[in-house]
Nucleic acid binder design. Structure first.
Lengths: 255, 255
DNA sequence: GCTGGGAGAGGCTTA
DNA sequence: TAAGCCTTTCCCAGC
């Protein structure tokens, strides 16, 4: 495709705030939060109506380069077409140099935000609040998503012995960060309310080393088995909840 | 565009492992790590040669829905064309139902990984190893990227007093996770080598609460100021390194 | 609208 | 395969 014609099509698409795609051989230079240079190669550039730009190779979901909220310009430079995306604060610049453009498409689309109905973590949280006895008999909710200076605890409850119980819920495998996070909340609650406090990490799985650390800190782990429903209109369902007995003995012994 | 012709084009593109884009009115249902439903609307679907699928609206870089590593199939169902992406372990399914297809493109591209040259934490690490005295006079390198059972320490050094110093380097603002990470390594080294050990967190910035925690744990913070170069072939340059004096007093006093 | 703070998810790398 | 971890992040609350 002729370079002059290509830049014309692109410029037109940009002005109409269409979603514009450009397929061609290009090199890419980025300087901003990081710096990167991509040698010439076949790629698909995607420019959206809100000024988002991304460069795609033929694998993986994430683009090799991208920038949001940019001011765009396209110019011819000799045989090349150069697309420049700029942004201030922080200062960033993305330069895409096309030495050959094979295709340009301009798709008319509203610049709306897709309303995505989704369910998962929040649902699980609600489900659990409905019946904390699943975790342990006698457990009563005190507060949900309580804000502390050191983060947000998922669920605060009170056990049958009158201890506070901080519950941290993870949708995926828990790791070191999850454990230390729970530990922070637990300590915080303990200090604030000045009452004996336990911490329970609730997740479908936990990394083995993270589990060791959890035990060392006197925290507990409970495996959460849940099933998502095909339609988000149906709530998720908690299939089972298995307590690791080993963790129970640690309560009260640790620091 | 006629639905039969569209599905034919898509099927052909998929079989050739091209990068295929489909512009049309579709609804999207996802079931897997979460569940979500997207009502009918104009969108651009992008399918890559490695089985990655993403659905784009005309704003933001991130797709509204996506899946990697899928097995794809496209079928006609009445007036609709239905693209199904499946994956096992964990089981996920993405269903895109097109009630109208306006355009299909099939771009021939290799499924290669673009070599992106960039300045990263690794570079900074190397720069620092060249001259640890930037951090503190008399500091001598012992090891880099040393593996422990609880993770990998960025840099291990020895100070002029013969203490071990564990250094954790962050390219961006340090947070809770950075602090607890450093703390784990520091304790680990202390235990393993049975020698007094310090921990220094080196980053351009640190969140205020994370800094409090750092102080409580008897760790130190040093501000790292660096500049990225336009070309990634030029190494980044460390502009300065400022020690927070307040942290120094904490060493030796803490637990 | 901007900023500070917290938490996450993809993708890479090594054991 | 699993664990660890880095990242051009994103969202939310508060001002």
């Amino acid at each position: 495709m002729d370079s002059g014609r290509a830049t014309g099509l692109i410029r037109d698409g940009l002005s109409k705030r269409h979603l514009v795609t450009v397929f061609g051989e290009c090199s890419v230079d980025y300087l901003g939060r990081a710096t990167s240079n991509l040698p010439f190669g076949k790629r698909l550039a995607m420019i959206k109506g809100d000024g988002s730009v991304s460069i795609h190779q033929n694998r993986l979901v994430r683009p090799t380069n991208y920038m949001v909220n940019t001011r765009l310009s396209i110019e011819e430079s000799g045989e090349n077409a150069v697309l420049v995306a700029k942004k201030l604060n922080p200062r960033e610049q993305l330069t895409i140099t096309f030495r050959k453009i094979m295709d340009v498409k301009s798709y008319p689309m509203e610049i709306t935000n897709d309303l995505r109905l989704s369910g998962s973590e929040r649902d699980l949280n609600d489900l659990l609040m409905d019946d904390l006895s699943m975790i342990e008999p006698g457990l009563k909710p005190v507060n949900q998503q309580e804000h502390f200076s050191k983060g947000i605890a998922d669920i605060i409850a009170e056990d049958s012995a009158g201890n506070f119980v901080v519950i941290e819920l993870k949708r995926r495998q828990a790791d070191y960060a999850s454990v230390t996070q729970l530990h922070r909340y637990m300590r915080q609650v303990e200090k604030l309310k000045n009452r004996k406090t336990r911490g329970i990490l609730l997740a479908p799985d936990i990394r083995s080393n993270a589990k060791k650390l959890l035990h060392e800190l006197g925290l507990e782990f409970a495996r959460l088995d849940f099933e998502l429903k095909p339609s988000s209109l149906q709530k998720a369902e908690i299939k089972g909840l298995e307590r690791k007995q080993t963790t129970l003995g640690h309560f009260g012994t640790g620091k």
